[in-house]
């Protein structure tokens, strides 16, 4: 069952990496997409832990809808964490 061991460790590394990226990144759009990636990896992990119901819920709600409402909020507020950066793009 070395296959499962490799898959689990890769998924765990990706989870921690995208979590750190979501918190550190100053560009909020990238951070939000990174939370979507967390949800996607989490749904694969739920499936491997024999929870298909939870995996389906996480894939439908966490990946699609939560990311979309975050993106809509960014559209209505500012894109960057630092206020000074907001003037550069516009």
């Amino acid at each position: 069952m070395i296959f499962y061991v490799v898959i689990f460790s890769i998924l765990a590394l990706l989870l921690v990496a995208s979590g750190l990226y979501a918190i550190i990144q100053k560009d909020l759009l990238y951070a939000v997409i990174s939370t979507g990636v967390i949800s996607l990896i989490l749904s694969v992990m739920f499936y491997l832990l024999q929870a298909p119901d939870v995996a389906l819920t996480e894939a439908a709600i966490g990946v699609a809808l939560t990311t979309v409402i975050f993106v809509i909020t960014i559209r209505n507020t500012t894109r960057f964490e630092d206020e000074n950066d907001n003037n550069k793009v516009k």
């Binding site: 298909p52 119901d53 995996a55 389906l56 819920t57 439908a60 709600i61 699609a64 809808l65 979309v68």
Partner: peptide, 25 residues
């Protein structure tokens, strides 16, 4: 399909409803 077969296969009302909402999105 997902919420009609909720008692037989993985899935159910919450998942099916979220999928339909994605379509409306």
């Amino acid at each position: 399909y997902v919420f009609i077969h909720g008692h037989l296969t993985p899935g159910g009302g919450f998942q099916g409803g979220a999928i339909i909402a994605t379509g409306f999105l």
